[in-house]
Design a protein around this nucleic acid. Structure first.
Lengths: 229, 229, 229, 229
DNA sequence: CATGAATGAGTCTTCATTCAT
DNA sequence: TATGAATGAAGACTCATTCAT
């Protein structure tokens, strides 16, 4: 479990910085660890049940703490939700920027890597992925204050921007057809989301998993269709 | 739709049996209209808020009737939801079958028409479309009795099956690459859903609507990628 | 069914008084029959489900009329309930008075006959019997206006009075022990009610019915215990 | 009662582990007290209004707590009801077994004591008594799962069984007439219930209370009628 | 008169949030 | 700081009663 890893991290550090100062330090770290624990558990519960059906009780139970404690770390259920979504988006952003900026790869290779990065992100941090792909859904529009929604939007735009840059570069180099780079980006991203969503809904114990295969074929087909010939 | 059929009947009969018969007939029509009103309002509310967050009160208010009235027409919230989903799927099924069965069109043309039909369906019956694309979500799995879920699954499979048939035909005729027709179908369908979902989330008053354009470009690109050269 | 008998009665009478006057007359009779129908059905439903759980819908369905119609004949659910209880009590009263007043029978014989009469009443009109024996239950105290409760109380007292008179007579003739006649009456009546109630709760399809046997043995034992030796 | 046992435990332990332990202990006691408060209030309300007409609101108001709190202690209205009925029956069972098993008393003395025990139980725990005597009513048949109803039935049978044993013993010793012991038991029990019910319904402020007197005379008369002479 | 659609107050139950300990 | 008992505002659903036809 994630929380185990992070809690052992904090334990290591408290060994190094022990002493008079260490008490405050350890407290700070423990608090951070507790916060992370709550975030992880909430993430899992939101994933499994959706925002509406997830209860604070569910989250508290999974984290083996009390309901009240959650409110020491997060203002409300919505705040907790936001606190999951934001760093997840930031995390993804970092990865995508790195790939898009790597000019030693061809645009096509970078497009493939971007898609794979999103897929890895989805596999490794499925909960956060879910939240990201749905943050715009109507049900959340009234959940967060305008400014928070705006933060999420901006980050999302940044993420898509990475793909757009790469595609534009490919077009500029004459490798890809002259199409609107933003439109192409949206095609990739939204088709990706749709494919994952659809394949996930077919995922059942004992049945084979076509997520990766469908995705790869999609990327191949799309790139084939986009490539200048 | 049923109410259309019965309304034409009533017109005929009221010519012969005016008076007494007309009353019963009018009542039947009013009841059907009221039912339709509830379905439409519920559809809109479910669309806007999602099943969990939508309340019967919301629906009643929008329809300008009382909460109790809704229960005169539908057994429960879940029943109401199902009553929206099922006929919408049936409707879509009919259209798709017709297109897929029209052998005078080329496979590619039929694929385009299938996609357009889904898009038209989505435009004309946006609420129902939304419901259809989400019926597999975890939150609904425990909402309906097994048999009702099974009905939805079967209809969905039938719908996808139409596309599969056409693609298989295209491959058989050597027009399309030799890929798994089911995988291709899933790609089309899920990418379609993802594109709509994503573009919808960008839809704001005063901004331009890229749904159709993105979709058309997606179809072009996909078909181009799939075509044998 | 009871309502059939009464409806055929009214039909017979309308044949005799036909003519100009007959229309009003028939209407009056039909109205009475309809009223009786509702009372009988309500009686059965109240018996089966209890006042709280019985619904006007239940009663209307059983009577094969509409809910609204019931309100043409009775002001409210409570009024309907009262309208069942009162005549049932009157009916029982008549029978008991007749038995108690028959001085040609010995007091003991009359006591037996009184008990049998109550048992017959219970068998023949179980619903009404139930209502009578429970009319004082706390749940009904807030159901009726004071004056109606008073009416029921007075009738109940009259009924018990018949038994009291006979017992007093038996004591006066030296046949029974010198005990408070009212106390004896209450013993008989309430034990009777308790026995029926208890035995009824054991009544299940396929099992034998001990109501009559328990009751007879109870009467024997009680009379034996009360008799002067 | 359970809370009594645990309270004596806590007293012992608080001597040894004062402080930290004391807090947990006090909480446990407060929780038990709260639970008991709810049970008592619910008992009174169910008594007064019957299960169907009693509302959780009523109970909460009487206990001066909120509706929600009740659900912290009991799963549902039906569960609350069951939680009253079961221990009440257990309590009664214990007392009756003790009396019936005391062979140093004559059968007649034990029958009197059994009846007095039931009367004491009724006086001390009138609400629970009421619930017990009605648990078979139709309205409850669909309220509890089969297994819970079975538990109640079994306990009730055990209770009656005590009386049956004593009566059978009396018959075996030639002290009582050769009658069916079960029938005699039912007579006693149901007459008892009926007498209490009837007398209760007459109970009004300012009027004298005949419950005890009627009951005593009933027992005398019954025993007199049953005794072999 | 009869109907039955419509109403809305009332019921059980859940759950985010608060607060005394 | 952590707890978890308590709260009360909703929400789904029921049903006695009314009223237009």
């Amino acid at each position: 479990m994630n929380w185990f890893i992070s809690s052992s991290f904090s334990w290591n550090r408290s060994l190094e910085f022990d002493g008079a100062m260490g008490v405050a330090e350890r407290k700070r770290l423990e608090k951070a660890a507790r916060r992370k624990l709550i975030l992880d558990c909430a993430s899992a519960v939101f994933h499994k049940k959706g925002f509406g059906d997830a209860t604070i009780e569910d989250i508290a139970e999974r984290a083996e703490i009390s309901k009240g404690t959650i409110y020491l770390y997060f203002k409300s259920k919505a705040d907790l939700y936001f606190s999951i979504t934001k760093p997840a988006l930031e995390n993804l952003s970092k990865r995508l920027k790195k790939i898009a900026g790597n000019k030693s790869d061809s645009p096509e290779a970078r497009i493939r890597k971007l898609m794979h990065a999103v897929y890895d992100f989805y596999l490794h941090d499925a909960d956060a992925y879910r939240l990201i792909t749905r943050y715009k859904a109507d049900e959340y529009q009234n959940l967060f204050p305008k400014d928070r929604l705006e933060i999420l939007s901006r980050m999302m735009r940044t993420n898509l921007g990475q793909m757009e840059i790469v595609i534009a570069e490919g077009i500029g180099k004459g490798l890809l057809r002259k199409l609107d780079p933003y439109l192409c980006t949206v095609m990739f991203w939204s088709a990706f989301v749709g494919i994952i969503q659809f394949q996930e809904s077919r995922l059942k114990p004992g049945k084979s998993d076509h997520r990766r295969a469908t995705l790869e074929q999609f990327i191949d087909t799309m790139l084939d269709g986009l490539t200048n010939r």
